[in-house]
Amino acid sequence: MLSVRDLYVSYGGIRALKGVSLEVNKGEIVTIIGANGAGKSTLLNTISGFLKPQKGEVLFNGLRLGRQPAKIVKAGICHVPEGRLVFANLTVHDNLVLGAYLRRDRKAIAEDLDKVYGLFPRLKERMRQPAGTLSGGEQQMLAMGRALMTNGDLVLMDEPSLGLAPLLVQTVFDIIEEIRGLGKTILLVEQNAFKALHVADRAYVLEQGRIVKEGRACDIANDPAVRDAYLGTKSKGGGGVA
């Protein structure tokens, strides 16, 4: 569905991606794990059209993507940005309706709205509240619901569990599986490698702008180097938090 080929991207004068290639197939959850600054967000922002690659290309269903973010949304890629970026000044309902900005079919929009409220009953309770009054977890749900309203087939998620209470982190990963259940394909960028590998089918490990490992998520999770670097399950057990 999505194929990224030999992508080179500079960001703020630094070469953030150095020849990244990856594939996402329909119906999959693919995760990209890596440390802070490895280039994960740069990759998603390039797919969404906010950054221009110096080299390489992104194909979606075999077609080259345009450069304008709005056209990429129209093509069927939606992006749940890091830090949620909900429109705090608008109501929950207006946030969701804006997700359907490019769509004209009122009936389908109303159905999707029901679907989103079904997935996130909390949002329905607060539909008339300004989004800025929601808790962090609720804002994450809103950001996801808003992306679903674009009706894109591929959902890019940038650090959905960032800054959430541990209990909510699990909820977010449950929701990711539910979103896949709606027939969506998901490309998930996460620092919480443990949870991400648990929910994903396949995984890529990104280090300093290069893919250093790829494979089935369960294999990656059992890879000794990955366990040491990202899962903190080293037998010496140094930095465990009691």
Partner: peptide, 16 residues
């Protein structure tokens, strides 16, 4: 209004 809050997020909704 959405652009006023965050232009990038607004573009992610498909807004030009």
């Amino acid at each position: 209004q959405a652009s006023a809050y965050n232009m990038k997020a607004c573009a992610l909704m498909g807004v030009n």
